[in-house]
Amino acid sequence: MARNVRVMRCTPEDVFRVLENGWLYPLWVVGTSRMRDVSEEWPAEGATLHHSFGSWPIVTNDRTVVRVWDPPRRVVLEPHGGPIGIARVAIDVKPRGDTCVVRIQEEPVTGPTRLLPDVVFDAITRWRNAETLHRLAYLAEGGAPGTSGGASALGHVSTAEEEPVDR
Rank of each mutant, 00 (worst) to 15 (best):
N21G: 06
R17W: 06
R9F: 09
M1P: 14
L154I: 12
G85M: 09
G155W: 04
T60F: 14
R6H: 02
A47E: 04
G85R: 04
W23V: 09
D166L: 15
R128D: 10
Q105V: 14
E41D: 12
L77D: 01
F16I: 01
A90W: 07
A153G: 09
E163S: 15
V102K: 03
A44N: 13
V38E: 01
F53Y: 13
D62C: 14
I124Y: 00
T147C: 11
H80S: 11
R114Q: 01
H134C: 11
L136V: 05
S39I: 13
N61W: 02
V15S: 09
E163M: 15
D14V: 06
G111Q: 05
P145K: 04
T125D: 08
G146C: 09
V93A: 03
I58E: 00
G97W: 11
T48A: 11
V76A: 04
H80N: 12
G82V: 07
C100N: 04
D37L: 03
R88P: 00
E20T: 07
T64E: 05
L24F: 06
G85Q: 07
R96C: 05
S152M: 02
T64K: 01
H80I: 04
A90I: 07
P83D: 06
D70L: 08
G54R: 07
D70R: 09
P57T: 09
W42Q: 03
L77N: 02
V120L: 06
E78H: 00
W56S: 08
R9S: 13
H50R: 01
E40P: 07
R74V: 01
G97N: 10
V120W: 03
W127T: 13
L77S: 03
G150R: 11
P145L: 02
R63E: 05
R36E: 12
S148G: 13
D62P: 00
R96H: 03
V29A: 07
R96T: 05
T99F: 15
R103D: 12
V15T: 08
M1L: 13
P95R: 09
R67H: 15
S158L: 15
T64G: 00
L136P: 02
V120D: 00
V75G: 00
E20M: 10
H156K: 12
F121H: 07
D14K: 04
P43F: 05
N129G: 06
G146N: 11
I124T: 04
V68A: 10
N61T: 06
G81K: 03
V76M: 04
V30P: 01
A160Q: 09
V38C: 05
L77V: 05
G46T: 07
P71K: 03
S158V: 13
H80F: 10
A160D: 12
S55A: 15
E163Y: 13
L19M: 11
D14C: 14
A140Y: 14
W28F: 14
P112L: 12
T159N: 03
H156S: 07
P12E: 05
R126F: 12
R6D: 02
F121D: 03
E141D: 01
G81I: 13
V66I: 14
V89Q: 12
R73D: 02
R96L: 06
A2I: 04
W42Y: 10
S152W: 01
E13C: 10
N21W: 06
V66K: 08
F121L: 06
M1W: 08
D166H: 15
D122H: 14
D122E: 15
E45F: 07
L133G: 09
T32C: 12
